[in-house]
């Protein structure tokens, strides 16, 4: 009888302790998980005046809150890629001598279609659409 009562009290105390602990920890863990902030959805951004970018060169353009690499391949040909390296997230750049896209972090190279040429990146860069409108380049998401 006494031991039964003792066991009951022990269970109640232990269970209460565990329950309180869980009641503290659960909100703490949820608190540490950052809420998702809705990204301003951008579909199109201006990429600057045509004459500002020489043929065989590239620059980074803000696309919402992500960087996009705009490349002027030749006098008339423009391309745009996500500038986020598919390996570990660094921001890539255009390399004029090799006419390729280069990531300085672990020496990854992509060609002008965004495909991996060498180095550790596992996937091609996402492609965007670059169009000339008047004397301006416009970058947009691919449909």
């Amino acid at each position: 009888m006494i031991t039964e009562r003792r066991n009951l009290i022990r269970t109640l105390l232990g269970g209460g302790f565990v329950a309180s602990l869980a009641a503290f920890l659960y909100p703490v863990i949820r608190f540490m998980n950052p809420p998702s902030v809705s990204e301003a959805s951008v579909n199109e951004v201006p990429g600057g005046k045509i004459q500002d970018l020489k043929p065989n060169s590239g620059k980074i353009v803000k696309f919402g809150n992500r960087p996009v690499l705009l490349v002027r391949v030749s006098e008339t040909e423009w391309r745009a890629f996500s500038a986020v390296c598919t390996h570990l997230n660094c921001t890539v750049q255009y390399q004029e001598q090799r006419r390729q896209i280069w990531c300085a972090c672990h020496n990854g190279f992509y060609d002008l279609n965004g495909n991996v040429v060498s180095g550790p990146p596992p996937k091609a860069l996402d492609e965007y659409v670059a169009r000339v409108r008047g004397d301006e380049v416009v970058i947009s998401r691919r449909a």
């Binding site: 980074i60 300085a104 672990h106 020496n107």
Partner: peptide
């Protein structure tokens, strides 16, 4: 955040060994 990673980028010396390994794989 809207600039390319510069050439010659590398971590502190104590993370260099894994860093270089990742470059090789």
């Amino acid at each position: 955040p809207f600039a390319s990673a510069p050439a010659g980028i590398r971590p502190e010396w104590y993370f260099l060994a894994p860093f270089y390994t990742l470059k090789l794989i």
